[in-house]
Amino acid sequence: MKILVPISKVPDTTSKIAFTDNNSKFSTDNVQFIMNPTDEWYALTKAIELKEQQGGEVVVINVGLAENEQIIRKALAIGADSAVRVDFDAADAYQVAEEIASYAKTGGFDLIITGKETIDFNSFQVGGMVAEFLDWNAVSLASVLTVEGNKANVTRDIEGGTETVEITLPAVVGATKDLAQARIPNMKGIMSARTKPLTVVVPTSSGALTKVASFELPSKAKECKYVQADNVGELVRLLHEEAKVI
């Protein structure tokens, strides 16, 4: 089985968010970048688990500039067999998806496993777009995935529960928590990552369809109104009369 895992680079979860150029650009000052958590913990490790069970190959793909090779090497250290970097600073998710899909078309892949949303734009776009570019089946928010022949059984989150579906491969599956057990790269993995193939390909995508007009930080920190622990009735009154939420 041949599996493609798109990985993206995002600011670390504890990063302080700031903007420059009149609030039009994300400020990278003092920001540490990491692999998007759900890409790493669930999508990539699930692909590696499947390969370990059934044989095959795991390829990671990143659309981005050379500086992204740090997270690509990490993915190789965790256990991907090879990597592809599309040398392109994409302006929106549409372009990223178009690049991934056009690479996927060349590769004979059975499965593409993506993370959930990225923790920067929280937009949840790439998996669905790739599926549509390829005209493949897709399931997102998957917490269980098993593959048998050309069928996959996937348990996905729905409102207030889960649903288990069977889909025919090739398909795109979007991960959510618990899809796989996260792994930390070991020394052997880190060593071998240095020599695993990383291919750089040239971009082919058309123009972006959306752009960021501006960013905005919350105007100011909330003012917390304190209620005494022995006066809980006051909280109920405030929630009813002032906040009007009960």
Binding site: A93, Y94, A97, E117, F121, N122, S123, F124, Q125, V126, G127, G128, M129, A131, E132, F133, A138, V139, S140, L141, R156, D157, I158, E159, G174, L209, T210
Partner: peptide, 24 residues
């Protein structure tokens, strides 16, 4: 809606229509 199914359906529709998509 940006609900569980909308999150997957909306980007697919956007690609079919070659539409700019604003998620969430």
């Amino acid at each position: 809606s940006f609900n569980p199914s909308g999150k997957l359906l909306a980007p697919r529709v956007a690609v079919r229509l070659k539409a700019g998509y604003i998620a969430g």
